[in-house]
Simulated assay, not measured.
Amino acid sequence: MSLSIHGKTAIVTGAGRGIGRSIAQYFVERGANVVFADGDEASLEQAVLDFGADNPHVRRFAGNMAERLSIANLLSTTLDAFDRVDILVNTHRLVKASEPLDTEVDTLEEMLRQNLLAGVRLTQFVAKRMIKQAENAPESHQTGAIVNISSMAADRPVPTLLGYSIASAALEQATRGMALVLAPHKIRVNGVRFGSVMSHELQTGLKEKPELRDQILKGTPMGRIAASDELAEAVQYLCSDGARFVTGQILTVDGGRSLLDPVMAQLL
């Protein structure tokens, strides 16, 4: 079983920070051509700093992933640099709290636009290019792989993050739906739902609330927080030929956290 992504070209959104940045960097280190995409140009520059400004395998693109023009320009940037795209990892996420019953500060529309529609629209653009690339490819050739990064909020909604929870659940359903649409074209679409991963955001949260660490460990049967590379490894698997017969699936990487009854967890 080959898990190699060496020589493949990947677009990773949300790559300026956190989990997206970890996945993009992980892919470069394993020989992929990677376009780091994010709305924050300063964070993108920092994310690719370790690879050098002249690295032929790295490009960065700053733009709002919820805008069609930015999506089209991102694809153009990728094709100009590498002439093709084999992998798309939709990691871009926006998390905003709101009062669920206060319509004046409701974040539902913004969450759906940023966390659902941006990924779906980019998938549509990239899939069309993948299909075109495969027109003269051998019958056994795998056309492409798309992975959407989701959250436990998709299955276990958080009241103060209702918009984010709804958008996360919708993204997982979109993953399944697009998997069916694109299966005849040999494009696989899967998702990764994660639990507690030692991202930049979590590190910041633990500094502000040190007691959060004990709560996480107690609520995770494996008793630890995952390293960001462990999530990247799961994404690499889904993008590799080792997962060539896997599509429409949501892979949960949470150390067993979703298996645990939260009430029982307090009794352990």
Rank of each mutant, 00 (worst) to 15 (best):
residue 163 G to K: 08
residue 217 L to D: 08
residue 176 R to G: 10
residue 43 S to E: 05
residue 34 V to L: 04
residue 100 P to A: 00
residue 189 V to N: 07
residue 173 Q to P: 00
residue 19 I to M: 10
residue 32 A to Y: 05
residue 96 K to P: 02
residue 118 A to W: 00
residue 251 L to M: 15
residue 253 V to H: 13
residue 25 Q to H: 01
residue 255 G to Q: 06
residue 58 V to P: 05
residue 230 E to Q: 09
residue 101 L to Q: 11
residue 11 I to M: 04
residue 163 G to E: 10
residue 71 I to W: 01
residue 66 A to K: 00
residue 242 G to C: 13
residue 40 D to F: 02
residue 218 K to R: 12
residue 111 M to Y: 02
residue 127 A to L: 02
residue 186 K to C: 05
residue 115 N to W: 08
residue 219 G to C: 04
residue 230 E to N: 08
residue 180 L to K: 15
residue 268 L to E: 14
residue 95 V to H: 09
residue 186 K to Q: 15
residue 221 P to L: 06
residue 75 L to N: 02
residue 176 R to D: 04
residue 136 N to L: 13
residue 231 L to Y: 09
residue 22 S to N: 00
residue 109 E to V: 14
residue 76 S to Q: 15
residue 84 R to V: 13
residue 94 L to I: 15
residue 62 A to M: 12
residue 222 M to K: 07
residue 150 S to L: 02
residue 14 G to F: 01
residue 47 A to P: 06
residue 166 I to G: 08
residue 35 V to H: 01
residue 267 L to M: 12
residue 85 V to M: 07
residue 256 G to W: 03
residue 127 A to S: 12
residue 175 T to W: 05
residue 100 P to Y: 00
residue 225 I to C: 05
residue 115 N to S: 06
residue 215 Q to A: 12
residue 111 M to R: 00
residue 35 V to W: 04
residue 251 L to F: 11
residue 250 I to W: 04
residue 175 T to I: 02
residue 179 A to P: 01
residue 152 M to T: 12
residue 94 L to P: 03
residue 142 Q to D: 13
residue 66 A to D: 07
residue 227 A to R: 15
residue 237 Y to G: 08
residue 75 L to M: 11
residue 257 R to Y: 02
residue 177 G to L: 00
residue 143 T to P: 07
residue 44 L to P: 06
residue 45 E to P: 01
residue 57 H to S: 15
residue 53 A to P: 07
residue 59 R to N: 03
residue 98 S to W: 12
residue 174 A to C: 07
residue 225 I to L: 08
residue 265 A to P: 05
residue 258 S to A: 14
residue 155 D to I: 06
residue 35 V to Q: 03
residue 97 A to V: 12
residue 225 I to P: 00
residue 209 K to Q: 14
residue 103 T to A: 13
residue 124 Q to R: 14
residue 148 N to F: 01
residue 227 A to C: 11
residue 78 T to P: 07
residue 70 S to E: 08
residue 155 D to S: 15
residue 169 A to T: 03
residue 250 I to M: 08
residue 7 G to S: 10
residue 235 V to W: 03
residue 219 G to A: 06
residue 95 V to W: 05
residue 185 H to R: 15
residue 177 G to S: 13
residue 174 A to I: 01
residue 37 A to Q: 01
residue 89 V to D: 09
residue 208 E to V: 11
residue 33 N to C: 13
residue 131 I to G: 01
residue 81 A to W: 07
